[in-house]
Nucleic acid binder design. Structure first.
Lengths: 130, 130
DNA sequence: TTGCTAATGACAACCATTGTCAATAAGGAA
DNA sequence: TTCCTTATTGACAATGGTTGTCATTAGCAA
């Protein structure tokens, strides 16, 4: 955790706690709702601010759902992609050097520079298949 | 164009015209603004309705910008990915059988089924590099 | 304990998108 | 061509996620 907070607060810890306990991606709204029904309430603004900070420091990954809502997840800091269950949200991090190389090659071949890429695979996991 | 409209209207033609003339992705709001300053005004609701229909019929690709706003683009109907210029929006369609196969392999290896995947490469094109 | 100020939270503001509904117009029938 | 049915439109309201505002609160260093 290499975030850029200058102070430690219980609110932030509560948010990070939720992220830790939650396997898979979760929205800011859901984090807020979850905490509402718990001992430590945290304001919605604070949840958003915390997510922005954690995103900037690369402690969480962001993913956009089809309707545009942002989903967050604690993650390893090395570059990776996701295999996400459409049903339960369970997420597996994937590393794929070949895909990285491919993205680089393709873009260079077309004269593109300063490349960034997104690779997400969404499906139904074994558990939800039943 | 295999859309599911039961009638032809000038509004819809105007929207499709804009998509034709625009190289790269464009938002519904921008299509609306563009038409506002032209001969044929089209209501915002109609733009959205048209985009929804064209998306359903697979005549346009949708892409979500970082802020969650949806961007649209006329496209070939075969499955493909995009190489997009962050600056001018110019888009190149990419086909990559290897990546398809990889996505399938990885997900099967983890017990996932009913797979869908997204691959987007964003960078700066040659023209904008200057 | 005190003081500075980062951080919080309630609420308003923003803005893309969707819903509503009366008015309009496409296009087949007569 | 004219009439009629109804798909489509457009102005406007409503929704909902996200960001901005600002007075109040609370880390934490001295």
């Amino acid at each position: 955790m290499s975030n850029s907070f200058t102070r430690t607060t219980k609110q932030r810890n509560a948010v990070i706690e939720v992220l830790r306990d939650h396997k898979g991606f979760i929205s800011a709204q859901d984090i807020h709702n979850f905490l509402k029904n718990s001992a430590s309430t945290v304001g919605l603004s604070t949840v958003y601010r915390t997510m922005t900070a954690l995103t900037t420091s690369n402690d969480v990954d962001v993913m956009l759902r089809e309707d545009g809502e942002a989903l967050y997840r604690l993650c390893s800091s090395v570059h990776h992609h996701h295999l996400v269950c459409r049903d339960c949200g369970t997420t597996i991090e994937i590393q794929a050097d070949y895909v990285e190389a491919w993205a680089k090659d393709v873009s260079q071949a077309h004269g593109f520079s300063d490349i960034d890429h997104t690779v997400e695979i969404v499906g139904i996991c074994k558990k939800c298949k039943k």
